[in-house]
């Protein structure tokens, strides 16, 4: 819904990281987006494509790894991936569970053109 705002945040980080490499084009950006982050990968790609026009990241390919929702049960120690966001251990039915993945919205790494080093 607000993928444009998120794309702006992403672009800011990317352009900041690319700054020391004076003008090098950003080729690829790897993101980790959790299934419960509320962000739709396709919408984010579209938004980023629009707002990066004319800049160093304009041709960058966004590679999005979708991270599943995983919970850890503090009762039996089990770790489970869940499709439906129920905070109940599927093994022992305890509600003493903690979400350990699924809400990520991270930039993992980026690849820039070789040959432009330092400024």
């Amino acid at each position: 819904m607000h993928e444009f705002a998120i794309a702006q945040g992403l672009l800011k980080i990317v352009e900041c990281e690319a700054l020391p490499y004076a003008g090098a084009k950003v080729l690829r950006i790897k993101l980790r987006v959790g299934k419960m982050s509320g962000v739709m990968p396709d919408a984010l790609k579209f938004a980023f494509e629009v707002i990066s026009q004319g800049g160093v990241a304009m041709d960058a390919c966004l590679e999005i790894e979708e991270i599943p929702l995983r919970v850890r049960c503090h009762h039996c120690g089990g770790i489970f991936a869940v499709d439906v966001p129920f905070m109940i251990c599927s093994h022992c039915q305890s509600t003493d569970v903690e979400m350990i993945s699924g809400r990520e919205l991270e930039i993992e790494s980026m690849e820039i053109e070789d040959g432009n080093q330092g400024s």
Partner: peptide
């Protein structure tokens, strides 16, 4: 070349 970033977008 690859730049490791590991940052929360928000």
């Amino acid at each position: 070349m690859e730049i490791k970033v590991v940052k929360n977008i928000l």
